[in-house]
């Protein structure tokens, strides 16, 4: 039975604990909560949760903001089919992508990289603040959120400056965050320096209403197909790309299929009187 102790803690929704936690403290998997009262309390628990959260709010550090797209356990907002009693749980947003810059000190090698980047930018007559929205250090990886209009210039510096020498662009990938108003579409660029044996990520955001990002093909020819793929799947227009056409989907395909507002496109499966909805239309935990 002892090996089940962490499991009975699982009964209690993680969100409650998540609410009482600051952004970078712990991850849900690390927490070893004491065994809490299981099942029957669950229904009566919801109002209690918020009072607990408030109580903590007054004493502890500031809570992360409410998660923009998630509430409850089944992604159901106001009694729309969620019969679990967990519908009023508040999920806190701990996504570092939506947070601010990571304050220094960073891990040693990333400190070095950060200094090198500052020096290279200075040499090019620019500064960190001019160039980057924020710098995120998370799980041993550094991501520079580059201001959109600066991207082409930054890519050139990252490739050519002797301190940096990021010779290879490993890829460009889109991510769609529909809840982030004004910066829904992200393009993440992975660079690799063989000279210094280190990596860096560049991230650029653009709004849905103006999905333009400067292309880096003229600096990194290898980004050619990756940008076409990102255009194909997310509709991000890479300005200056030599031939921004669809690459994976047929040329006449409507829409950009890997955006979050594009349905999965599955069909219900019928067999002997039973119908199973495609995965995106089933009730699911979020």
């Amino acid at each position: 039975m002892s090996d089940n102790d962490p499991q009975s803690g699982k009964q209690d929704p993680d969100e409650v604990e998540e609410a009482a936690r600051t952004r970078a403290e712990t991850s849900p998997v690390e927490e070893q909560s004491a065994a809490e009262a299981p099942a029957e309390e669950a229904a009566a628990e919801a109002p209690e949760d918020e009072s607990t959260a408030e109580a903590l709010d007054t004493t502890g550090p500031a809570l992360p903001p409410e998660h923009p797209s998630r509430r409850g356990m089944f992604g159901a907002y106001d009694g729309s089919g969620d019969t679990t009693g967990y519908g009023r749980l508040v999920v806190r947003d701990t996504n570092p992508v939506r947070g601010g810059s990571t304050p220094r000190p960073w891990p040693e090698e990333l400190e070095q990289l950060g200094d090198d980047v500052s020096a290279a930018l200075q040499e090019a007559g620019s500064t960190d603040a001019d160039t980057f929205e924020k710098v995120l250090v998370d799980r041993g990886q550094v991501t520079f959120f580059v201001k959109r209009e600066k991207l082409a210039e930054v890519a050139r510096i990252f490739r050519d400056d002797p301190l940096l020498r990021f010779e290879l662009c490993m890829g460009v990938n889109g991510v769609h965050y529909p809840e982030e108003t004004g910066r829904e579409l992200h393009a993440v660029i992975q660079l690799l320096s063989i000279t210094h044996n280190r990596r860096v990520n560049l991230e650029v955001t653009c709004p849905d209403s103006d999905p333009h990002i400067p292309s880096i093909v003229h600096t990194y020819p290898s980004a050619n197909w990756h940008e076409r793929e990102t255009y194909d799947f997310f509709g991000i227009l890479f300005d200056g790309h030599p031939a921004l056409t669809r690459i994976q989907m047929p040329d006449d395909w409507p829409g950009h299929p890997q955006r979050k507002d594009y349905p999965l496109g599955g069909i219900p499966v019928e067999y002997k009187g039973a119908t199973i909805a495609p995965p995106d239309e089933r009730r699911a935990y979020n």
């Binding site: 299929p257 496109g265 599955g266 069909i267 995965p279």
Partner: peptide
């Protein structure tokens, strides 16, 4: 039958 790839593609 499309198998596990029940999607747009």
């Amino acid at each position: 039958s499309g198998g596990m790839f029940n999607n747009y593609a």
